[in-house]
Amino acid sequence: MALVPSASLVVAAPREALAGACNYAVLMARRVGGGTFAGAYVFPGGVVDAEDGPPADAPARCAVRETYEETGLLLTTPPAPGAVPPREGPFGALCARHGIAPLRPRPLARWITPRAQKRRFDTRFLLLAIRDDDRFLLGQLGSARAQPAELTQLRWLAPDEALGANARGELPLLPPQAYILHQLSRCRRWQDLPAALPPLADAERPVEPLLCRRSDGAAVALLPGDRAYGTADPDDASLFCADRAAPRLHRLELAPAAGGGFHAATLLRTAPCARPQL
Rank of each mutant, 00 (worst) to 15 (best):
P276E: 13
A232C: 06
V47S: 07
H263Y: 10
F240C: 04
A21T: 13
D216K: 07
G142F: 12
C62Q: 03
A232G: 03
H263I: 01
A83H: 08
A201F: 06
G261C: 05
A13Y: 01
L267R: 07
A201C: 06
P114S: 04
N166P: 00
T231S: 09
D202N: 14
P14T: 09
Q153T: 07
R269G: 12
L128V: 01
L193S: 01
D49Y: 12
L184Q: 01
A116E: 12
A237E: 04
P194D: 04
E208K: 06
C187M: 15
G45Q: 02
D202K: 14
A258Q: 13
Y229K: 05
A203N: 01
R213T: 02
W111Y: 09
D57C: 12
A196Y: 10
V11D: 02
A109Q: 08
R97E: 10
L252Y: 06
L252N: 02
L268N: 15
A144W: 04
R120S: 10
L73I: 08
L181H: 00
T77P: 12
R155P: 09
V10T: 01
G99Q: 06
V64W: 03
A165G: 13
R145M: 11
T113D: 05
L267G: 09
R168H: 12
G225Y: 02
L103R: 07
R104C: 07
A29L: 04
F125H: 00
L138K: 04
E150H: 15
R110E: 05
A58I: 05
L127N: 02
A63L: 04
G225I: 03
L184S: 00
D216Q: 11
A258C: 13
H250G: 13
G225A: 05
G259E: 14
L128Q: 02
L163W: 05
L239V: 11
P55N: 10
V32Q: 12
A109V: 06
Y41A: 08
L211P: 01
L267D: 05
P234A: 02
L222M: 03
R251L: 07
P194L: 09
A178W: 03
G82A: 12
R155Y: 11
R244C: 15
F37S: 12
P176R: 01
V220H: 03
